[in-house]
Simulated scan of single mutants.
Amino acid sequence: MNKSQLRKLGAGLLGACALILTTSFATPVLAGSGTEMGKVTNRPIPRFVSMKASEGNVRRGPSLTHRIDWVFKRRDMPLRITAEHGHWRRVEDRDGIGGWVHYSLLSGTRTVLIEKDMLQLHSRPDATTLVVAALEMGVVARVSACNGEWCLLRSGGFKGWAPKARLWGVRPTETFD
């Protein structure tokens, strides 16, 4: 083979690798449902999880050979999974910053980030009920349940209901017990 043929072969292989990488990191969409499901877990994408570890490397791609771009250093921080590949999950934080982390660093425990300073927790999901605590902006709280507009939170020994619109880590239409 001459140099020209080798260049063409190399370019063709690069294109094939790019195609393989692009399709292997994609997640399928169920026909007619409008719900995207992860190809590894068959769970909805995107979905929220939290950091299990107090420190987790965030990589450019889904393997140990990819460069570490930064490190998440906050246990229980809520994250949104946006893709799956083998044992790896592409996640992003509240600011949309993220990358690939190993699934063992993540937990299904639901947490939220408080997005309003001195957010009041109420005894029931009603703004006219007793205020049991106030949480500062940036606090991470555990979520026990969510209805249409409110979520039941636990933080710092306090438990109460907060408006869902003031939280990052739950979808606006999400409900669960």
Rank of each mutant, 00 (worst) to 15 (best):
S144E: 12
Q120A: 14
G34Y: 03
T41M: 00
R166F: 14
R43F: 08
P46Y: 03
L153Q: 03
D69W: 03
R171C: 01
L135F: 12
R166L: 14
R90S: 07
A26S: 12
S54H: 15
G169A: 07
P125W: 01
R67L: 14
S33N: 10
P78G: 00
L152R: 04
K8V: 11
V132I: 13
A18R: 03
G108K: 13
I81M: 04
F72E: 08
L152C: 03
C17T: 14
D76Y: 12
P46S: 05
T41I: 08
L106Q: 04
H66K: 02
T41Y: 05
R7Y: 12
A18D: 04
S104W: 11
H87N: 11
E36I: 14
I114L: 12
K52V: 02
G156D: 10
E36F: 10
G34F: 08
S33V: 11
S123M: 00
D69V: 08
D117L: 07
S155I: 00
E84V: 00
F72I: 05
I68R: 04
V71Q: 11
K8E: 15
A162H: 02
R124V: 05
L113S: 11
F158W: 08
Q5V: 14
R166D: 15
C146M: 04
E55S: 15
W70T: 11
W168L: 10
G38I: 02
K116R: 13
V58R: 05
P78Y: 07
F48Q: 04
R67E: 15
G38L: 02
I81Q: 00
L79W: 08
A26W: 02
S155H: 14
T23V: 11
A53H: 15
S155E: 09
S144H: 13
I20P: 06
A141V: 06
H66S: 02
R154L: 10
K73H: 09
V170R: 06
A127R: 10
A145I: 02
W150S: 12
K159G: 05
R90D: 05
I114D: 08
